[in-house]
Design a protein around this nucleic acid. Sequence first.
DNA 1: TGATCTTTAGAACCATCATTCTAAAATGGC
DNA 2: GCCATTTTAGAATGATGGTTCTAAAGATCA
Lengths: 197, 197
Amino acid sequence: MSARLQTDKSQAVEVAKELFWRRGFEDVSIEEVVKATGFNRYALYTAFGGKREIFLATLDAYYQERRSIFLTSLDDPDTAPLEAIRRVFEFAINEMAERGTGCMMCNAATAAGDPDPLVIERVETYLEEIRSAYIEALQRAQAREEINTTISIEAEAALFITLMFGLGVHARRGASSQEMMSVVDSTISLLANSRQP
Amino acid sequence: MSARLQTDKSQAVEVAKELFWRRGFEDVSIEEVVKATGFNRYALYTAFGGKREIFLATLDAYYQERRSIFLTSLDDPDTAPLEAIRRVFEFAINEMAERGTGCMMCNAATAAGDPDPLVIERVETYLEEIRSAYIEALQRAQAREEINTTISIEAEAALFITLMFGLGVHARRGASSQEMMSVVDSTISLLANSRQP
DNA sequence: TGATCTTTAGAACCATCATTCTAAAATGGC
DNA sequence: GCCATTTTAGAATGATGGTTCTAAAGATCA
């Protein structure tokens, strides 16, 4: 009964995520969510609370999926760290460009209106996890001498996050995955070919 | 008379730009624009056409201001190209972080709903100009041997645009200008310290 | 089957918004 | 000062949206 309800809820979140990812919080009406999920309107309200809570649940679901894909790739001991980072971007770029929806976190952060504190809070939590994963990968890269040992790991991790944000915007303006991958490749080359300052 | 009307129009655009930049197209009502500009509602419609046209005019005004600041800095013959690029980012970051509004072009591109073709078209035009300016600066940097001559100028120009987009998103999530500048500085260092592959 | 509890579909409520209409006020030329 | 034109403030229009209410339908279990 409760398990069944949870299943229904996560299915509804999956469907609503698709809508919110593509068109954002403002542009998707509850009516559309009701139609797309098959959930009863009143049941949606009792299950989630309101539109905002549904949106936050979809944002969580979006992140958890990407988190598991990213961390699996970055933690793979059989892949060189820089190549693992490259693959993370490759996956993200293919997804963002193919769908033209960009990155749901970027879209949520840049949404119209004053920033929603709950959205920002979640994004901060997500970013901290991703940042740690980049830092670990970059430390391994330094240990293997794939990259210069004088480079600031923290700064490079921040660079990767900024790149991912920027690529999310590029995807929204309709950039091709080739255009986007060339940015990533050139950054990784710079990192791999950096000499002592 | 017509000159006076034009003056009034550009003053109204300035005021409306402030609103749209901070809160986006959707979240600002015509009523607010009327109150903030002092324009009569009906007069606004006869002068511009509608809300969308007012927004597009503010987006143009936003870009033209930044364009002139960027190009002036990038074309300054007394400044080393990489330093000029760094100053462009410094200006943009201070503005975006201080105001917390991010980049109006990014916000417009990632806005809720299906992307507005007229917005995308304008953003593409703006980007092409900025891209050219970066490319010229990078060519001068190569000519002065500030950067490695084997580096792809086009890829680096694309990288700078992506960085600027990403920083716009960072600003919306409340990042500090220090955090944002460190990303720029580390990228420029990578570029300056790149050896032959 | 029948009584109780849950779920549902749709109406109702209240608010907001872009845009247009209208009648009053202001302006300008003579 | 007076008439023609422009400008204005506010109401009207038509539409949408989030949320809640309600009465009917359905499920549960004895």
